[in-house]
Nucleic acid binder design. Structure first.
Lengths: 161, 161
DNA sequence: GCCTAACTGTTAGGCTACCTAACTATGAAC
DNA sequence: GTTCATAGTTAGGTAGCCTAACAGTTAGGC
C-alpha cells in the first residue's frame, strides 16, 4: 500500500505495463466514441441514470431519479461538472430534472424515454464494434481477457475507498 | 470483423464488460495523473519522444528528434494538436524544436535533459502508485492481469490498421 | 527552368469537459 | 430564530482536441 517503499521490481514492471496498456486504450475508447451521436461523458451519465433507476419508475414509487451529487460521485467528477452534463442532456430531451419531494434543496434527475432509447442504441453500437474486434482474436486471448476483467474491476474499486 | 452481423452473444457480453472496465479505468488514470507535475497528454508526448530518440543523441548522428507529423500519428491526434503540445513543452523547457537538415518543411522535436529527467520522475511516481495498488491483490489476480496485458496490446494494435 | 500539385507545419477559431470560487436556497440544531 | 451545514447553480478559467485556412518547401511534368 505504501508507495514510498522500494517495492518489488516485478510489481513495478507489471505496473508500468498496465499503465501502458491503459494509456493506449485511450485511443480505442476514442475510436468507439467517435461515432457522433453521444459523447463519452454523456453516455456515461445516461448509463449511470439507467442503472440507478428505471425511467418509467414502475416500481419506484417513492424516490425516483438520482440526485446531482450522487451522479457526480458516481462519475468521479465535481458537482458543477455533473450539473453541466445534466443541463445538456435535459436540453437534448434525454433527461429530466424534478424537485425532490423530500428535500427542496435537492434535485432528482431521471431518464426520459428518449434517453433510455438513446443509451441503449449507443451501447449496442459500441458493443458491436468492440465485439467485431474481439472476434478477430484467438480463443485463448479472449479467455485471458475475460479472466482479467474482474481483476481490473477490483483495481478500480480500490479507488472508491 | 464485420460489425453489422448479429454476432455471438457471448462475444457481446465480453465486449460490454471490457468496455465497462475501460470506462471505469478512466478514473484510475485520472487519479494517477492528478499529482500535478505533468498532464497525461504531456507525459505521453514526452514518453514518445524518449522512446523514439535519445535526448543526448550520442549515437544518433544523422536524424535526431521526431517529426511533428510522426508525433501526432503516434499519439493518435491531428497535427495541430501535436503542435500545441510541443509548444507547451518547449515553453516549459522540456523539449526543443529544430529545423530538419534534410527537409526544410519539417521540424525535428527533441527532449531536453530537463525533459528526460521530468518524464523519468513522473513515470516512476505513477508506477510506484500503481504498484502500491497491485501489491494489495492476490497473486492469482496479478497473474491474470499479466496474462491479459499482451491481449489488450493486440486489441489496441488493431486500430493502427 | 517553371508551374502545379503534394506535403509539413503553424495559426485562428471553436467545442467539450473538467475545475475552483462565489452565490442562492433550504434544512437542521440549539 | 440565528447560525451552520448541505444541494445545486452560475461565473469564469484551463486543457486538449478538432477543422479550416494559411505559408513555406519539395517534387513532377513538360
Amino acid at each position: 500500500m505504501n508507495a514510498s517503499e522500494p517495492a518489488d521490481p516485478g510489481l513495478l514492471v507489471l505496473a508500468q505495463d498496465f499503465r501502458e496498456a491503459l494509456r493506449h486504450s485511450i485511443y480505442l475508447v476514442r475510436r468507439l466514441d467517435a461515432d457522433g451521436e453521444l459523447s463519452a461523458a454523456q453516455l456515461s451519465t445516461l448509463k449511470m441514470l439507467m442503472d440507478s433507476g428505471p425511467a418509467t419508475g414502475a416500481g419506484a414509487s417513492s424516490a425516483a431519479g438520482v440526485r446531482v451529487g450522487e451522479i457526480a460521485r458516481n462519475l468521479g467528477v465535481k458537482v458543477p461538472s455533473a450539473t453541466e452534463q445534466i443541463i445538456k442532456l435535459e436540453r437534448a430531451g434525454l433527461a429530466r430534472r424534478e424537485p425532490d419531494p423530500e428535500d427542496s434543496r435537492a434535485v432528482r434527475v431521471r431518464l426520459t424515454q428518449a434517453g433510455r432509447t438513446a443509451v441503449e442504441s449507443a451501447n449496442e453500437r459500441r458493443n458491436a464494434v468492440m465485439a467485431g474486434i474481439l472476434a478477430s482474436l484467438p480463443d485463448a486471448d479472449r479467455a485471458a481477457l475475460a479472466a482479467a476483467l474482474p481483476v481490473i474491476g477490483r483495481i478500480n474499486a480500490t479507488l472508491q475507498a
